[in-house]
Design a protein around this nucleic acid. Structure first.
Lengths: 241, 241
DNA sequence: GCGAAATCTTTACACTGTCAATATTGCGTC
DNA sequence: GACGCAATATTGACAGTGTAAAGATTTCGC
């Protein structure tokens, strides 16, 4: 292993709008067919990531294979390997895309909030909403074991996600969260916020909250349950199960 | 990798003491030849589940394949299919075993608790402890998508797990939790407890709490963080990220 | 005892990831 | 301009997987 990922630079000829994924590559026709489907794709890496996203949404996590992505992008089955090294590489880069989408969604939700209550609930709601809108992507990000966090793009995107969370908790507690040291109380607050929302999301996606939702008053949505979970008065006793 | 698949010679083998890895060959059927490895295993289903558990602990979730389990049990590669239908079937039955182990661990932890504080923290701690002691099994139960909850054994075991949780939350709140109806507050309490511990466990197993733990005072363990997370004073504001 | 059903093996096939060996092209350097 | 090399993409191969079908062997109901 250790095939250092080639830093592929965008020399992209003209890219045009044929980036709309030219399917139906009619096999090799080298000299003549230069107008379409050149031997060198030009922006295959990005095309593969987009193809992977489509496959993921269409066929789920189980259908997301290197060869399926290659088929979707209309290239040979071994083409992805050259750009991502192996399946872990592809999944990791795709997870990085997901984290960036996720971070953008969180930021935009925060900006839209006005009242204090809204501001407090905006991020959790956006968190769950993203996962529900992109369950496959969320699965790549948080369910898969095959992620390589030593890849810079993934490490960065995930780190940014964590930083946003820690920062939001700090805001909530109206105190500065240091970069390199935390009190136990601060760490507990961050862990609680993250665990709660992440756990809720996973249980929800796995259908394990159906038992609860079905027993709740008619028409109670998952979002309403989330709200209640985050805002309900605390008994003063430990809240463990 | 060089393992030639047909290592198992045709029947009537003289090697009676193949007890190397197949010591659990009871040959409970009082047939004539009990010393030889009989064509019919006799208790292959249970043997396969135990083999699966060994494979899972040894090679992780990625190594848990139908054929690997068959090899571990010393039978042909298609034998598991007959007992479990397909891979989903095997994983589901194994998850059921896990849920039963899990329920037993939780119950025993509850019994051992004496003081109110201990009683409040016993279940969460046992929850995390089980996951740390059996990460593979926990992954089967909560990470895999391929589970068939229509299988009675799995449905029952998982249901018992949920009932135990709901019951514990009811105890904590000193109120009766009805079987078929919940108030929003009750549902929120259950969802909060479960989400928090489940989310914490997944983040911990995935190494995503390392960032927090590293920034905490020297020598703070995950268990200590869990305690703090569950018992820390509430600010009165919503606790979302 | 005997046929039927259950159990296990063998065989086969379509997939998969990954490697090695090509073919094709782009680009820097004469 | 042409040449050479590296990047890019294809082809082919191989071991491993799940799963289905057909055959072999044993147990069970009658």
């Amino acid at each position: 292993m250790g095939k250092s990922e080639t830093a592929r630079n965008p020399r992209t000829p003209k890219k045009t709008s044929s980036a709309a994924n030219a399917q139906a590559r009619p096999a090799r026709r080298p000299a003549a067919a230069r107008t379409e489907t050149p031997y060198h794709h030009g922006a295959l890496r990005e095309a593969l990531l987009k193809a992977a996203e489509r496959v993921l949404e269409r066929d789920g996590l189980a259908g997301l294979t290197l060869r399926a992505v290659a088929r979707e992008a209309g290239v040979s089955h071994a083409a992805p390997t050259h750009h991502f090294g192996d399946l872990t590489g592809l999944l990791s880069e795709l997870a990085a895309v997901g984290f960036r989408q996720f971070n953008a969604a969180m930021a935009s939700a925060c900006d839209a909030a006005t009242t204090p209550l809204e501001r407090a609930l905006a991020r959790p709601k956006a968190y769950v909403a993203y996962a529900q809108a992109h369950p496959g992507m969320y699965g790549i990000m948080f369910r898969t074991e095959r992620l390589d966090y030593s890849r810079p793009s993934l490490h960065e995107a995930a780190e940014a996600s964590f930083a946003g969370l820690a920062n939001a908790v700090g805001m909530m507690r109206q105190e500065q969260i240091s970069e390199d040291a935390l009190t136990l109380t601060q760490g507990a607050a961050i862990a609680r916020a993250w665990s709660m929302v992440h756990g809720f999301t996973m249980l929800l996606l796995d259908g394990r909250l159906e038992d609860i939702l079905d027993r709740l008053p008619e028409g109670t949505t998952a979002e309403r349950l989330l709200e209640a979970m985050l805002t309900a008065p605390i008994t003063g006793k430990p809240t463990g199960p």
